[in-house]
Design a protein around this nucleic acid. Structure first.
Lengths: 354, 354
DNA sequence: GTGAAAGCGCTAACAT
DNA sequence: ATGTTAGCGCTTTCAC
């Protein structure tokens, strides 16, 4: 008998996964004893335990977590869901890393899913997580309607919100103070003499974008400058759009002398617009979120730096306290931000031409 | 009865997840009929189906995938494992995104785990994936010993290797041609007049590093230059170490006139060393792997660009063909690389001083 | 210290 | 077209 030329899904050499019953039979004990040994519960003689381990190794046995979690009293799957913008966004990747830092210590796995800023996708993803019976969800929500979220919480799904607060929900939250940080960035530019500053930001439905816009206006108000002096561009959603939008402003008769780019991809687009025009030493820039190599550019880029990995860690810590039942009501935890002066944000405006 | 002040893990308002049995009772049908409806199998009157859907919505029912996959004939969990360097490495993030692109279309979730270049961690992670009964594993292996991998394959776990080939295993593989690409990068520098080129690379146990080293030597051989002219630094594992290593070379009496930095983090370290000494316009550089903002630096950075998202997509496509039973024996798929000339790699060596 | 029986929530196989 | 029974692999319960 020669096996077919295809290895197919089930090559002939494949031995199926052994079951606890088979291990019990080989070791000459009951299944409950095997269960006790592999979960190291007490109440087994070391001699019996040895016989069980021998059988486990002989059969290359690994428990089936699905069956275990199905029968167990708390039914935990040891899995957390993470809903973020996209898994290849560096900011999101760092959050993911922070969550994993704590989760991996507890044998908890992380299921990360990209939302692509799409509320419909968010609903679908949360439903999928419920069907998988995940222990909890850490989510940077992208939708204004929170029905699916409160419904998930209502059925006992643990939730921690990151980056953005869910509109109108009392819930655990880990964010930066976006409004204050944006005001700090803008004041920094004003302090260096700028009055005509361009704000480039995402659509206001994105809560962080709205907050940063408010912070921007706060700074103008505090300095007593009419906000009419500002150049506000709303609804920029990626680097290309940012480059194009800032390009139009720079090429206009009365261009801004400084830019506040209120998100990491927008910062990159703004840099492209400035560099392609050779204006990077004339027009000041502060970005929201640090970007890779910001310190090697000329000029180096001044930014408001969030600590996404720390946000992930804090959110995971909060989640595990909830899962351990130690939580005492919803909390909103603020992770501090840092204004890092590197050069681009300290460029003065050109002297007035008269 | 007033509820306690803590909301705890199970707030009083929480309704537990409904079961298929409850839905069946409410709709006045058998559980199998509910199963047919929610999995939209044929053989149910539209009238009956309507009654079932009403009950589903009334109880806010969502199937328990654990139970489903436990009982189903093929037992698929609709989950793929992804083992990569770290989830916050941009290169790995793009691979993740590529895998997700295909997986999400099929309702398959991706469990990404960071390996931290630690073989022990890899063994642990693969075992965890087996206990979770994932459908398959896409892995950029970090270990020289493949026992755990062939054992996993032996028990029917589907595997696709990315980025690095498993030493001595015949298996499905999606990689770049590291040796050829490294030779191309090095030849590019030689073509521009360099003879004393520094190679900065990871420890040779990492298979891609070994291949790139070979490619580097190939280029010297092909040009008929004795390899003694080269400055080879092996075992660099992050940006800081790369900056320090290149710094030492640059400060030596006979410094290299060009650098080939054979990995993304190493490229960043090398850039730091060059920029901090103001040598970025004197010493040529080609990096392996593209980096963010490479085109905005001065000079812009010439790189060998892999397409990690495409690697992820191709690996996922291969995985799904295996899972669908359409596979015809192990394949090694090569994803092409691109030499992107941006400036840093085209700097000529200084004229000989006599 | 150990094991037999029941059952977690679902789908397979076979009724009707 | 629909329901009934068994059983996926495990943990719980409770007996010994």
């Amino acid at each position: 008998m020669v096996s077919p030329t295809t290895d197919g899904a089930h090559p002939p050499t494949m031995k199926k996964n052994a079951t606890m019953k088979q291990v019990a039979a080989l070791a000459g004990v009951g299944t409950k004893t095997v269960s006790r040994v592999v979960n190291d519960e007490p109440g087994v003689t070391s001699e019996t335990a040895r016989r069980v381990w021998d059988a486990v190794h002989a059969l290359d046995y690994q428990v089936d977590m699905r069956a275990g979690s199905l029968r167990r009293i708390n039914g935990q799957t040891k899995t957390l869901g993470l809903l973020i913008s996209t898994v290849d966004n560096p900011f999101a990747g760092q959050i993911h890393r922070g969550v994993e830092d704590l989760a991996s210590q507890r044998g908890v796995a992380v299921l990360a899913v990209s939302l692509h800023e799409d509320p419909v996708h968010e609903v679908t993803a949360v439903e999928d997580f419920i069907r998988r019976r995940l222990d909890g969800i850490i989510i940077g929500t992208t939708s204004a309607d929170v029905t699916h979220l409160s419904s998930a919480m209502g059925r006992g799904m643990q939730m921690v919100f990151i980056d953005r607060r869910p509109p109108g929900l009392v819930a655990d939250c880990v964010t930066s103070d976006n409004r204050e940080a944006a005001a700090r960035a803008t004041s920094h530019l004003i302090k260096h003499g700028h009055r005509r500053i361009a704000l480039l930001t995402e659509r206001p439905a994105i809560q962080t974008a709205a907050e940063r816009h408010l912070g921007f206006l706060d700074a103008y108000g505090e300095a007593g400058i009419p906000t009419g002096e500002a150049d506000v561009v709303i609804g920029v959603s990626n680097a290309a759009e940012a480059a194009e939008a800032l390009g139009r402003l720079l090429d206009s008769p009365n261009p801004p002398t400084a830019v506040f780019s209120a998100q990491n991809l927008i910062t990159i687009g703004a840099l492209q617009a400035l560099h392609s025009r050779g204006l990077q030493h004339q027009v000041a820039q502060v970005g929201f979120d640090d970007i890779e190599l910001a310190d090697l550019l000329d000029p180096a880029v001044t930014v408001i730096s969030q600590d996404p990995r720390e946000i992930g860690r804090v959110a995971a810590a909060r989640m595990f306290r909830k899962l351990d039942g130690e939580s005492a009501g919803p909390e909103h935890i603020i992770v501090p931000t840092l204004l890092i002066e590197r050069g681009s944000g300290e460029i003065p405006p050109p002297p007035p031409t008269q």
